[in-house]
Structure formats: structure tokens, C-alpha cells
Write a protein that binds this DNA or RNA. Sequence first.
DNA 1: AAAATTTATGTACGCGCGTTCATTATCGCT
DNA 2: AGCGATAATGAACGCGCGTACATAAATTTT
Lengths: 360, 360
Amino acid sequence: MWLHIVTRKEVAKMAGVSEATVSRVLNNVGPIREDTKRKVLEAAEILGYYPNALAQSFARRRSGNLGVILPYVPKVHIFSTYYFSEILNGIGEQVRGLGYDMLLIFRKPGVENGYMDLFRSHKVDACILLGTTDTPAERKALKALEEAGHPFCLVNQHFEGERFLEVDADHEQGAYEAVKHLLEEGYRKIAFLNGPPEYSNSLDRLKGYVRAMSEAGIINPAASLTEAIPPEWLDSGNYSRTSGYEAAKRFFRNKDHIDAVFAANDRMAIGLMQGFRDLGMHPGKDIAIVGCDDSDGARITDPPLTSVSVPFYQMGMMAAKLLLTDSVSEDHPKQDGGTGHQIQMSTKLVVRSSSRGNPA
Amino acid sequence: MWLHIVTRKEVAKMAGVSEATVSRVLNNVGPIREDTKRKVLEAAEILGYYPNALAQSFARRRSGNLGVILPYVPKVHIFSTYYFSEILNGIGEQVRGLGYDMLLIFRKPGVENGYMDLFRSHKVDACILLGTTDTPAERKALKALEEAGHPFCLVNQHFEGERFLEVDADHEQGAYEAVKHLLEEGYRKIAFLNGPPEYSNSLDRLKGYVRAMSEAGIINPAASLTEAIPPEWLDSGNYSRTSGYEAAKRFFRNKDHIDAVFAANDRMAIGLMQGFRDLGMHPGKDIAIVGCDDSDGARITDPPLTSVSVPFYQMGMMAAKLLLTDSVSEDHPKQDGGTGHQIQMSTKLVVRSSSRGNPA
DNA sequence: AAAATTTATGTACGCGCGTTCATTATCGCT
DNA sequence: AGCGATAATGAACGCGCGTACATAAATTTT
């Protein structure tokens, strides 16, 4: 027994028409008499005909795939982070509606611009790049992609000075509101646990932090970003819970000069809470904590974590939409008079009890 | 300016050989003189030749894609659950090494056996199905797939009586050890918050629970599974945190007859903890809680949650490996003398403080 | 009623590659 | 040198589909 693959030819024969007509009927192209259409569809139904997607892609010279590139971080299960999960969800929802498929690719560790091959080999029609960092190599690779005219979109990362297609969130405003909230709650000695500098968010959040603190007259707005901030208020981790836990120890040394910490993501914020707790402090009481992402984790800590909600899901949807309905199907990689798309979505502070103590 | 696509033909011309030879060199097939090989590779390098993956797939009649089917649950961001994330990570790691790509597909809501089309249209060479449930429609669809000879693998779900390729975990043993641990800690009045019955895990865990409780002489091993259990000890939710929270209220009504709860996943366990806390009880002290999955969440609750660790990551890897190195590349969908692969991986209890109180 | 459209369908080709088969170069041996 | 065997290469085809072009049928216009 061998499963015969039904082809267009057989449908044509059964329907008594040419192969071209079958093709036209199934693709809804050109004028077709109503009853030939019916005949073809009936024949296809009876024979159980399914167009061969491989042949279609080949003939159309389009894969029908949207590539999603994920960073390869050894030992880290990348999907397990709220951030990626949500974005992927959004992308998935969008491609689903647009008839595309989603090709997941893990960036190869050593290869510099591995994603160029994806386009060259026609495996994808467009790409969404997640977790990129602003390094010289990365910039170069992206510029090469742009140069070659391959449509791609960055999510949650901005490359200053470039015209890349980007879907970002307003992290500066998010940080500003988070810190402002702490100030309004009466906290003054507010530290900031930032993320790695190669992510544009880090600079954004720093700006927001400085803006809020300057407006409150706590730090000198005239000085440069970092110089105005007392060193014991500025620290950084790598977005892991562990790095937050470690940072708590460092902050603890200056605990008299700190009554609140704003962290660049929830995982670090949760690490901070655990760290402070292990040092005998009570998060939400002795020290206020605010995180970023408003992940699931923020709801299950004790006390629940105040956090900056970022619309990752919508950002994923938007990125896919931009790529699949502009640059690809039509043919104008840039619009808005050549400025390209630089979408920025707004964040929203979700206040929970980790930041509602009564500071001295 | 228009980007010319370099084809095999041009490489052949530059290297002064035929197209067939170019093909042979790049695919390492047949005997080739060392210097022609060099010539071809040089020409390819100079011209920047990349084989067209679409054409390759078409000619080979293999897509090179491993499909991963995810359940479509409206309003639920499926990736955000630890369970799926980990499995996808494992699959991703495996396909990466095998030169395959990973095509993510969300099962369409209405369509009964939508994945049949994926095979028929040759979009995928094999499929991993996640989040399937044991319903008549699903069984039928899977049997049809099997009948048609399409290689697929189920992860974390077992269909009793079928010979499907499955990678499951030993949830019965996991539940057994979890309950036994509670018994050893001195708890006797142990309730069980199960998941929906259409998941095979639910029955597995129920068996494990009953086995442990029977061995301890607490319930009658002779009676049927459910009859032996006092009704106030058996409840079920839908794996969401909320359903755990709600269950806490029900258990609370019989709080004098309950001093521990074993939950079928961490999210429900966390919901239980929050629910009991809101009712004035202290999880880990007034009532012991044990979950399943050993997700990230288990580490950040207060108290940290004892949980049954399930090797989802390895399960994903294994599923991909089975499909991509047996059924697909070679051609024997079943081995072990026709029993098919039914892999079962072991679980491991991770004890934390949510289950180390001192029960009365 | 014939010519000029418009509508509907068929014919033929190519997309870029893998691969079979035929052909030629190379080698080992008597 | 001659022969058979093997190594190396080229010529040719087909995979299943989209589509440009040619053609035939139906419709409108003159």
C-alpha cells in the first residue's frame, strides 16, 4: 500500500478542464464560469486534493513563512521568560490570521549574521528579531540586512541613529511613572537596579528614573545622567532572579540610604525581594520594590509586586502585522517619507502592595 | 538596483563544470575530483551562492520542517505557561542540531483534524502535538493520521489502547512520591486537587494518590479509585491559578478534615496558597501544599512550594529526536516488534518548605 | 450580420534543484 | 599496448505549480 499523492492534473482530468483552470479556480484568479468552478471544486473534493505547499512556494518564490529569531543563550530556556512568551503569543495570533506560518529559529551561537542565510535561502519572507543587543557586530549585521532589502522588524529594542523597523515600548515613561509613584508614596531614597547597557531599554529606563528624580529635586538635572546619581543608588544585573538576589546584598550595605528600589524587570525585582528578606528586611514594609514587565510572577509574590506593565503581546502582533501587510505583500519597505516605522507603545503602572509601605 | 539571485547555473559556468557537478559537490554525493570540488566551492564562495531552500524542498519532496502544534485556547497566552515553554525549548534544541526547522502552528478552533492538512500540503515532515486531550474526536483524528502514515508524536499525554508515539512522564509515580512525602511528614488528611479528566495525567496522578493513601492504610485499596476517597478530599480545577484559588474556598469548608493538599500543577497550587491565605490560613504551617511541574513560580512563592519536577525540556528533546531520526529519515514507523515507542520519563520530588510544617 | 470587445479556457513554459542514465576520463592489470 | 573496471562528469528530465500568451466562446457594438 502506498499513499498516492493527488495532483492538479488528476483534478483537471476528472473535472474535464485544463490544469490552468484548476489553478485559477483554487486561487480565485481571473474570470471563471460558475459551473466550471463547481465542477473543479467537486472533483477536488472527491479526490481529496490538497495543493502541494512546497510546489506553491517554489512557483511563487515565496515561502509563506515569517521567521522569528530567538537569541541562543546557553543554559537558559529562553521560552520560559515571560518576555519572549508574550511576544511570541502576539506574533502567533497575527500570522494565524494572515495565513502565514511561523518559523522559529534559534540564533546560532558563533555565527555573526546567521539570519542573512535565512533570507538568501528563501526560507523566510520576513523576520522578527527578538532579544537583539546593540553591539557593533549586531548593528553591522542589521545594516547588511537592510541594505539587501530583506524586511525585518525588531521588537523591544531600539538602534539609535538607524531607520530600522522597530516596535518598542515607552520604557522611559514607564520608568518615570514607576519612580514618580514611589515618590508620591513618600519614598525619597530610591535606588535603581538597571539591566545590561546593550539593551536600549536600559538607557530608556535610566532616563525615566533621572527625569522623575530630577523633577522631585532629589538629584541634579543639569549633571550628566550617571554623575548626578549617588553611586549607591545605581546598580545593574543581568535580568535574572539571581542577579537581583545578589544586588540585594549590595544595596543592603547602604540600607540606611535606600528605602526603595526600582528594578528593570520582575525577575530581578523578585530576586531583590528574596534577597532582602533573607537579610531580615521586609519587602513592601522596610523597603519598597517596583519591577518591570508585570509578569505572572508579580501576582504571586508576597507582597504582590508593583510593576510596569508592557504590552508585549500587542507588540508581537504589531510587528507581524507591519511586516506581513506592508513590506512583504506590497513593496515599500519604508513609508512616512522615508523615516521608516518606529512604533512605540505605551506602558502602564500596576500598583500592588510591594510599594505601599509607609516610609519613615 | 535589483538583487540578482545567484543560481546553480552561474556557479557551474564560473567553475567550468556542469550543474549536476555543482549539485554533487554541495551535497557531498558521488565521487568528485578534489580540484573540481575546490573550483566549485570557490566559485560558490565568490558568487555568494546559497541554494534555494524552496527549490530544494520541492525537488526532495521534503519540507525540512518539524511542525509543533499548540492548542488554541482563547484568551490564554499559551506560551506563558511553564509547561509549553519548557517543551518547546527542548524541541528547539533538538531540531537545531538536526538541521530541521520548527514550524509553530496553532490548532484552529473549529476544525476537527486541522493538522491532517499540514501533512497533505507537505508543510511538515513530522509533527509534535502538544496539549492534546483524550476526546473521541481527537482519537479519531489521531488514528486517521496514523492510518495515513504521517509521523507524529504526542508529548505528556497518553492514549490508552493506542500505539501512538508518545513521550510521557511517570505522573503516577510522581504523585505517589508527593503524597508519600506528605505522609512521611506526618500529614494524614491529604486532599487532592486534580486537573481535567481528558488529560491522561489526571488519571495517572489519581492512581498515584490512591496508591500512596492505600499503602498508608488511610483509604480502602479494594474499592474503586474514586469511591474509596472521601468526597471532601477530591476536587478538580482547570490548571489555572484562579481555579486553585476557588478550590481553596471549597476545601476551607472542611478545613478540619484536611491538613494538606496535593495539586496537579503549580499554578493551581499557588492559587490554593493564595486562597488559603486570604481565608486566614498559613500555607506551609496550617496546611501543607504540594504542586506539580516545579515551575519557576514554585521558587518564588512564600513559602516556596514543594513540587514534582517533570523533565519537560528533555521530553521535548526526546520527541523531536524520535521523529527526526527514526520515523522520518528511515522508514519504520513502529519498532520494538510493533509496540511503537511509548517513552516514559521519570519525575522527581523537590521538597521545599510548603510541605514541612508540623501537623497536629 | 459582421466587427469589436470582453470573457473564459487551453497551451506551454519556467521556477532551481535532485537524480537517473549515458558518456568519457582514469587506472590497474596482463 | 590493450582491456576491463572504476571514477568522474555531463545531458536531460521531472517535481507541481503559477502564469504569460494564445485561442476560443460569448457578448456587445456598429
